[in-house]
Design a protein around this nucleic acid. Sequence first.
DNA 1: GCCGTGCGTTGTATCGATATATTGAGCGCG
DNA 2: CGCGCTCAATATATCGATACAACGCACGGC
Lengths: 334, 334
Amino acid sequence: MVRMADVARAAGVSVMTVSNVLNERLPVGEETRARVMAAVEDLGYEVNLTARHLRAGRTDTVAFVVPSFHDYFGELADQVAPLIEAQGRHLVLERTSANAQQEMEALSVARLQTYDGVLLSVAGLDLEQLGLVRTAKPIVVLGERDVPDHLNHVRLANESGAALATAHMLERGSRRILALGCSFDAAHMMTTDRRVGWEHAYREAGLTPDPAYVVPVSDYTSRGGREAMLDVIASGLPFDGVFAVTDIVALGALSALVDAGLRVPDDVQLAGFDNLDMSRFIPPGITSVDANHEGVAEAAVRLLHRQMSGWTGPAEHVVAPVRLVVRGSTRGDS
Amino acid sequence: MVRMADVARAAGVSVMTVSNVLNERLPVGEETRARVMAAVEDLGYEVNLTARHLRAGRTDTVAFVVPSFHDYFGELADQVAPLIEAQGRHLVLERTSANAQQEMEALSVARLQTYDGVLLSVAGLDLEQLGLVRTAKPIVVLGERDVPDHLNHVRLANESGAALATAHMLERGSRRILALGCSFDAAHMMTTDRRVGWEHAYREAGLTPDPAYVVPVSDYTSRGGREAMLDVIASGLPFDGVFAVTDIVALGALSALVDAGLRVPDDVQLAGFDNLDMSRFIPPGITSVDANHEGVAEAAVRLLHRQMSGWTGPAEHVVAPVRLVVRGSTRGDS
DNA sequence: GCCGTGCGTTGTATCGATATATTGAGCGCG
DNA sequence: CGCGCTCAATATATCGATACAACGCACGGC
């Protein structure tokens, strides 16, 4: 590896002069600068960022830690990246590996401190694990779980979103709406909050939600949604609407409904949550609660930036508002 | 920030002893070790990885540089991650920002050398830009462009994949198959290669491909695919099949076809490329060329690992084979 | 002719952890 | 009682870039 000292020797100057040429920190004579640049070109020198980071105590880099690189997180990350870059920093994505347990304790926490700040997306982590994130680093937690008070947190308005979608389908004539992928599992806040929203919409409409219509999925994939949906159909439970906990699950449900010969939205209305890019285009268009990537990204970056700027006030807990995007999978005005 | 020296002082030992306790390098007396561990706990010490990396000359980290965190790349990254981790290394995703031009020259190349190796996915970069990636770092290029000979490269069998999909639709009765999103643009290898595959299938079947059926898209999104498809429909050009250059584009095409009242696959057969997760579930199931993430990931990681282990033989250019996954958007045996 | 000013350049300490060589204490054995 | 051996613990140099203070030199003013 070619070091700055090598360049200095080749150009017949001191290392500091090389550094000053490259960083334009102190002024350097024109003729000297030219000699240095020539040597840099010649040797193919590139600054060692690791050394610079150590010396500077900063990396100008922010990590976004996600459970997987897929779908929702990929889309959100694409929103976050430009905002971080606008601050002159750089964004990298890290994945909490499969074995979140040991990972969190052993490696990740130590690794995170190579970054100036961390956006931590919690899906697989529970409160207890979050408790041991006691790093002094600026950190903002994203996601639908409860987090310790002292951590900055951005989440979606899950309840109101689910209620919007459900109310919309009730309004358009559905009376038996499945809450697919929702749950009563207190440990899984997202699916629970969305179930509560579903219940609220029922009550708001003067109806009583039936717990039998809360149908769990084995995993939050299209496959999981499809299988749960097929089970419901096979069981004979009558239904005329599906609120799926995510668009991914909704897609699985749609696949099952079509296979079973049920028409969407004529026989069954369908709505999801997240408003993924694809949801607009999947025929007949999936009605979905927009996950407000823009708002979430903006809030998260703002909170993070504030911490990185030295602010040490109390943590903020932002609930990003959501809105319903109506498409062909639910019925028009009747 | 609490340094190793702070721990050493608190425990009444030298820094090396602390280091030895934490890294289990040289043996340390039981009683001393306990004192050190207590001090570590007490002060909440965490090793400074930047310093360690500088000293060690390694970071045990590999970067996967992608044009966006979305879709195809997100899925591929999820395949790559476990393979890298199996080598005791860590994977992070970096995004080539919008202004690839300056980015490539100024920052990225320097940044890349904080990693032990780099997987570089080229979509927005052209050959010339790749030329200036003259770093000595282990690097493997992924993607459908031509790359300089000296760089290790993994690509898909684009031509044969496109031919598979086209031949399949020809076999099942289509005679006028659009090559949607394909092109004659020599600078855009992927769309060109896939067009060539489409042509081959025609010739192989004793038919002559009509260049009028090569329809470009404004961008490689579902929106772009949808708009191009709508234009074709409006133009009155007769067609009975669509080979879309990617599944994302295919989804847009499907959306347009359904809106136009065309039945898939009865009126128009449709096939895509990439076999994204969603393609299996989007009714009626999108026939697609599987992008062989597993094979691509495996080859890329293998080539990278070889370089990181010190191998300096000639670069290898791997063409990962693909296969066709038949679903409902094309017709069954007739 | 001497001193002050300003600009360009350089030497040295530092960031925090670790590899290597070395010191020191304890113990067995002749 | 002393020599050598082992094992634990330490001192120091190093990774590569940069902040800071100091230095040398040319030039202008009196």
